[in-house]
């Protein structure tokens, strides 16, 4: 059983630029993941409008019956969100770690075009290592 079920990265206009599944039940096709990503982008924006006080930056954590959704938004508007088991700890740290990997291996890649889907070998490699490490750390705890 994995702590993290899937990971989405969406650009600042709501387009899905990276999606990885780590063992959720049932298949999700590309169209569905694209739709879910843009739906999340708009939900995030609406939640800021409904805030009772100023300075709302959108949903950080959504608690559902069977999973938790952790979302991290970078200063440039790229959103990272992970679907994980209910109550999985330290997901914010994992998402920040993934953001670092994104800046190192995607943004510093001269062949990467901004706001386009991520196809970087080193990013894939380091991401899978980070997720693996997170799982091992979870087992050790």
């Amino acid at each position: 059983m994995a702590a993290i079920y899937s990971l989405f990265i969406i650009n600042k206009s709501g387009g899905l630029i990276y999606y990885k599944d780590y063992g959720s039940a049932g298949r999700m096709d590309t169209n569905d993941s694209l739709r879910l990503a843009s739906l999340w982008h708009s939900m995030h924006a609406i939640s800021q409008q409904l805030s009772p006080t100023v300075g709302c930056t959108g949903i950080d954590l959504l608690r559902a019956d069977t999973f938790d959704l952790h979302c991290f938004q970078s200063l440039t508007g790229t959103k990272f969100f992970a679907i994980c088991e209910p109550g999985a700890p330290y997901m914010e740290l994992l998402l920040k770690g993934i953001y670092e990997l994104y800046t190192d291996y995607v943004l510093k890649n001269p062949f990467y075009e901004m706001e386009m889907p991520i196809r970087c070998e080193l990013f894939e490699l380091n991401l899978s290592q980070a997720v693996q490490k997170d799982r091992v750390a979870l087992l050790a705890r």
């Binding site: 939640s47 800021q48 805030s51 009772p52 006080t53 100023v54 300075g55 709302c56 930056t57 959108g58 949903i59 950080d60 954590l61 959504l62 608690r63 559902a64 019956d65 069977t66 999973f67």
Partner: peptide, 10 residues
């Protein structure tokens, strides 16, 4: 599947 809460910074 439904949800029971979500949290923002405010």
């Amino acid at each position: 599947c439904s949800f029971y809460s979500f949290k923002t910074n405010t």
